[in-house]
């Protein structure tokens, strides 16, 4: 369960007091609001990055564990941005290997070898019929392929929650629809609670919770 309580985002000339957020496994929250209201800042704060343009306060708990004083690398929260930032020096397969947890073990309880990790990554790609791009580099992928590989890589890390910052905004409307539906179903089936920032209020999935930051804005 992903909970955010007493959250306040202070921006220039105003502040936003968010209602308490509670997401069960597989649930999705969509955050909308005008530009400059601190949506992305809020996501970066949840991730553990120190925001530059705003001050955010509140309590974050993930599966009953308070996260405020936990470093980014120990939070187990994944991040997916509009530019998914696939590492350009690695192939798609190695990008996924990079994200696989370090302590993955095989059926004998032994740490996976390099080849076994590659097999695991390939299996993840095969699940979504993208194994043909395994040896490709980022510049060889289409926009839709990048988004899907980005999500697979984020999920390969087995995060306990996922943050998405307009992850499909760069795609054309058709691809955006296909990829987002696929992504939400993946997140739901894996039980990962997620928060997504979006500008597109017309394409919010019916099952998702929705918060418009403008509704909670208070000028100072």
């Amino acid at each position: 369960m992903f909970r955010i309580n007493n959250c306040q985002i202070s921006i220039e000339n105003g502040c936003i007091e968010l209602p308490d957020i509670c997401l069960d496994s597989g649930e999705l929250l969509v955050l909308t609001g005008p530009s400059g209201m601190g949506k992305s800042t809020f996501l970066h704060w949840l991730l553990g990055d120190s925001p530059k343009h705003a001050k955010v306060s509140g309590e974050i708990t993930l599966n009953m564990k308070p996260l405020n004083s936990v470093k980014i690398e120990q939070r187990r929260i994944g991040l997916l941005m509009q530019d998914v930032h696939l590492f350009p020096h690695l192939t798609v397969l190695d990008n996924i290997c990079f994200a696989l947890p370090a302590n993955l073990k095989n059926e004998n309880g032994k740490k996976l070898s390099k080849n076994q990790r590659r097999d695991t990554a390939l299996a993840l790609l095969k699940e979504i019929n993208l194994d043909y791009v395994a040896q490709h580099y980022v510049e060889q992928l289409s926009g839709g392929e990048r988004s899907r590989v980005g999500l697979v890589r984020a999920l390969a890390n087995k995060p306990e929650a996922l943050l998405m910052d307009e992850p499909f905004a760069a795609l054309d409307p058709n691809t955006c629809m296909q990829v987002s539906l696929w992504a939400f179903s993946q997140l739901q089936s894996r039980g990962v609670p997620s928060i997504m920032v979006s500008h597109d209020i017309n394409n919010i999935p019916p099952q998702a919770q929705h918060i418009d930051l403008a509704d909670f804005y208070r000028s100072l």
Binding site: D49, E73, Q74, L79, M81, H85, P88, F98
Partner: peptide, 25 residues
């Protein structure tokens, strides 16, 4: 810096981000 941020979200420490991402890139 988002490359390192993404690496951090996968559990890489500061120096792992430095060696495995920054220096590699």
């Amino acid at each position: 810096r988002h490359y390192e941020l993404v690496a951090a979200s996968f559990g890489c420490s500061y120096w792992q981000q430095f060696w495995k991402v920054r220096l590699m890139l």
